[in-house]
Write a protein that binds this DNA or RNA. Structure first.
Lengths: 253, 253
DNA sequence: CGCAAATTTGAGGATCGTCAAAAGGCGTGG
DNA sequence: CCACGCCTTTTGACGATCCTCAAATTTGCG
């Protein structure tokens, strides 16, 4: 059950064979806990990748003033330090927002799989492209007023959590603080609170008991200008006329 | 001379062989002009990649209100529609800010090169990771006040243009409008103007005659909290202990 | 030279941040 | 079980940043 989310997301790029699935499942043994509000480091050795099995985490940078800006959420089934380490992630950090369960995967082991399996290669490649697409959407979202910005974020979380069965049709458990959301939206915590009240008053969304409830999902999506296309959950099958239909990640050089 | 910027950026991932360089140069024949303020489409056929040889372009989305948000600049030597087409770029568009010269490259041709050459494969893979890193930095930049935000943007442009010999030590030609910069920063055009005046008064940067002049580069970088690490221009050599040292883009499946 | 677009500046208002304090929730220890 | 302390949430007041509208000025271009 643990690696379900991991496989679910990888298979967005197309179905995997039974061998590929079992190879990937073998990576998820021996998880370790990470307490809330603590960084998820890549483990003792620097050459490890981290797979989050449960909990909410985030990628973030800290500004000179000391405040934190979250640039993306890390949900169960997401890999960390795959690309954002070394020169590509010098000041980027990964932190647990809630208690998390993570697995350290030796990079070499993952690379062996990539080299041996075209399906896994493609899956990881597409995961990277989804990250890029999502980052750009976040930039766009930063131009909207706070109310729509929060609405958009809630829609994204709802959609992403539904994919891995962590959200119902109309809500999801969200055990993070309003300050965390503030850092993800780039606004102040008090303003998050005000905006939440506004959304509650408009009957667009409610946040209580660590749970987001969205009475009218379509209304919230419309208000937040949320179009799930950028998440690349659909239309990405292997039989698509896609740019990266065939050419993908693999062990070269 | 035309493909200089293209090769320069690709070789950030490590030197290319003479064959690889000449294969890439062969792609840059027969450029076509794109007028300012016009979208750079992928040509007649959808399965083409666009290489910008000269001019300033941008990737952008349009919000519901009709305003545009630029999510990244496209400079000479940058590829468009490599990954941001099909499902991965449904609402993302590429527009020319100034008159541009672009080359259409059949995707299949590029894929053949990727499959045949590990160096090219790695180079294009790293270009994608740089895009991701840059997008995340833009998210972070959106949390800064407008003055620092503009300073940061100018520093990024200076650094990126210096790489391809389009900037001197202290300035560069920048023939775009203040509205374009406003869309890139997510603020209003009039506020761009005010912020420019502030930077001019502080003697941090001047913009006149379509040229940015930065009297004290270090001062502007400090003010804008600009750390070039996220651009991944350095420390990315093939001899680095990098995550993607070997495993890269290639023709799989 | 004259038109169109871009830049510049002003005034007023909306959004959002900061500071401060009150209220609520949750775990620990008595 | 209650009391206490800490953290989070909530609300208010005030100020800073930024937007919108509008007009004046400059620049670019035919």
């Amino acid at each position: 059950m643990a690696p379900y989310a991991f496989l679910r997301k990888l298979e967005l790029a197309g179905p995997l064979t039974d061998e590929e699935r079992s190879e990937l499942q073998n990576l998820t043994l021996d998880p370790r806990p990470v307490p809330a509000r603590q960084d998820i480091t890549s483990g003792d050795a620097a050459d490890r990748v981290c797979l989050v099995l449960s909990g909410f985490a985030c990628r973030y940078k800290v500004l000179q003033a000391g405040n934190r800006r979250i640039v993306s959420f890390v949900l169960p089934g997401d890999l960390c330090y795959m690309h954002d380490t070394g020169a590509f992630g010098r000041d980027l950090r990964v932190g647990a927002l809630t208690a998390c369960s993570v697995v350290d995967i030796p990079r070499s082991k993952l690379m062996d799989l990539i080299g041996a399996s075209p399906g896994i290669s493609r899956a990881l490649w597409w995961a990277t492209l989804r990250e890029l697409s999502r980052a750009r959407e976040w930039i766009v979202n930063d131009t909207r007023p706070a109310e729509q910005r929060l609405a958009h974020l809630l829609c994204e979380l709802l959609t992403c959590l539904q994919l891995i069965d962590l959200a119902s049709e109309t809500g999801f458990k969200f055990p993070v603080s309003q300050s965390d959301v503030a850092d993800a939206l780039g606004i102040s915590p008090v303003h998050v609170n005000r905006v939440l009240r506004a959304l509650r008053t408009s009957e667009l969304a409610t946040w209580s008991n660590q749970r987001i409830t969205i009475p009218d999902v379509q209304a919230l999506k419309t208000f937040g200008e949320f179009d799930p296309g950028y998440l690349c959950f659909e239309g990405c099958g292997p039989d698509m006329s896609m740019p990266s239909r065939q050419p993908l990640l693999a062990c070269a050089s």
